[in-house]
């Protein structure tokens, strides 16, 4: 555990809390892509199945459980409790175009052809693109509420901070995982355009609005 990894995890935790608290407080999931949330639930479920087989640390177990519970709670809010506020007309990204290539790639490029390892690899590939339905929704509506922007910023920062963690781990332990690194870089690059808008607009108190 290094400071980049810890900050990355905290950033992820903050993102999850921002999202849940936004939905709960406003009693609305307007502007949130249910499809991205379904993909994240799939990602955490596939990756954290090792909860039952491998014990890493109390921290590790605790965080995994939090991310699993929060992703299912978010889905429950979007598709059940606050479904009347779900903006389904703008959430039209075809997620099979993300899931199927991730499955295929995980079957072809993995560290070890075993059930848990392929699922782990699938989750890494899928996570790298899971935010696309949300970004697509923002680009379709042309704007995002600032709280949604804060959520996206925290969520995007998490994998960005992991990149620094991987650089640090390579330097200090000669340890690296090429699958996680490539996918993590792809994931972070997808947020770049958003990061730019966040810094130039949202942080200056303006609404995140895309140029017409």
């Amino acid at each position: 555990m290094n400071v980049f990894r810890l900050l990355g995890d905290l950033s992820h935790l903050i993102a999850v809390i921002i999202l849940l608290q936004k939905i709960w407080h406003t009693r609305s999931c307007a502007g949130i892509s249910g499809k991205s949330q379904v993909l994240f639930a799939l990602v955490y479920t596939a990756r954290y199945l090792d909860l039952v087989s491998t014990y890493v640390s109390l921290y590790n177990t605790f965080m995994k459980v939090i991310f699993l519970i929060s992703s299912y709670a978010t889905i429950y809010f979007i598709y059940m409790k606050f479904r009347a506020t779900y903006d389904r007309n703008h959430d039209t990204f075809r997620i099979e175009f993300l899931i199927l290539p991730s499955v295929l790639l995980a079957l072809l490029i993995n560290h070890q052809f075993s059930f848990l390892e392929v699922l782990w690899t699938f989750s890494i590939y899928l996570e790298s693109v899971a935010i696309l339905p949300q970004l697509f929704m923002v680009s379709k509506t042309g704007e995002a509420e600032s709280i949604t922007s804060h959520y996206l910023f925290a969520l995007g920062s998490y994998r960005g901070l992991y990149i620094f963690n991987w650089i640090y781990r390579y330097w200090s332990e000669q340890h690296y995982d090429i699958i996680a690194i490539v996918a993590g870089v792809v994931q972070t690059v997808l947020y770049c355009d958003f990061f730019y808008l966040y810094v130039t607009k949202v942080l200056k108190g303006k609404k995140l609005q895309l140029p017409a």
């Binding site: 990894r5 995890d9 992820h12 090792d50 491998t54 890493v56 640390s57 590790n60 965080m63 995994k64 991310f67 560290h111 070890q112 390892e117 782990w120 992991y162 963690n165 340890h175 690296y176 995982d177 090429i178 996680a180």
Partner: peptide, 10 residues
């Protein structure tokens, strides 16, 4: 590379 050991990450 790794195998398994990086799965300490989240």
């Amino acid at each position: 590379g790794k195998d398994g050991d990086l799965h300490d990450e989240l």
